[in-house]
Amino acid sequence: MNIIDARKLVHEYFRRDEEGNVEGVSVALDGVDLKVKAGQFISVLGHNGSGKSTLAKHINALLTPSDGTIYVDGKNTAEPENTYDIRQTAGMVFQNPDNQIIASIVEEDVGFGPENMGVPTDEIWERVENALKSVQMWKYRTHSPNRLSGGQKQRVAIAGVMAMQPKCIILDEPTAMLDPDGRKEVIRVAHELNQKKNITVILITHYMEEVVDSDYVYVMDKGKIVMEGVPRDIFSRVDELKSHRMDVPQITLLAHELKRSGVPVPEGILHRKELINVLNS
């Protein structure tokens, strides 16, 4: 069964002038079909304003469809009584690490979700411990978030979601505000949760390097899914990616350029080693 199943999802919002009168309608999502199997690691790529964050908010029932439907673990997000179930099933991590940490102590923040769900005290502690250990932040449990690095704060935010024991985690541009080290930390942790805890991960990003190890990649532009496939397939379509305001990693681009110059190199090279092997053969 698909843990996430979006069918012809449409999201419109009204643009209003200063008096609040409707000026026009903007379409943020335009007939999106998205199917994610449990246990997958999928990525949604797109430039700023492509609609990818709007899509993320639909998976968490923070927004509901203007048209079309989306099921999360078989539950329709449009039904208000499903809201809290969906938010427990599909936890969400946001872009700005500072604006999603509620408490002044790491462990208290991780406990916030379970507290809201009405989990008994003893179990909250258990969950907090497991969650913090799963992102390697256990030894920081009594620290103040303000003294942590960006990557560490994002890991705390992930732990906050993990403590709700979700089946799926949506990471909405979790690395956009981090430095290269922090970015690596967060992506590594996301892959670990996917592999060790069998959590379905949906990574929303505009950094191409981060999606290389995904199971499946969607590319969005103007509210539509414009490309989809395994990373190798997506990365072999360099010119198409560029037309959607996306970049490709240096190695992939180099392989593409070499091929154009007549060197027999296949498209969709993802890693340095692959290119070296090809060149040496």
Partner: peptide, 27 residues
């Protein structure tokens, strides 16, 4: 204001719905 609205959304995403039915980590 931007932080407040982000935070409100993050709290909602973590199932916050007021004090009713909440348990405490550190009672």
């Amino acid at each position: 204001f931007r932080r407040a609205s982000d935070l409100a959304m993050a709290m909602e995403a973590r199932c916050y719905h007021g004090g009713e039915g909440r348990t405490k980590m550190k009672p």
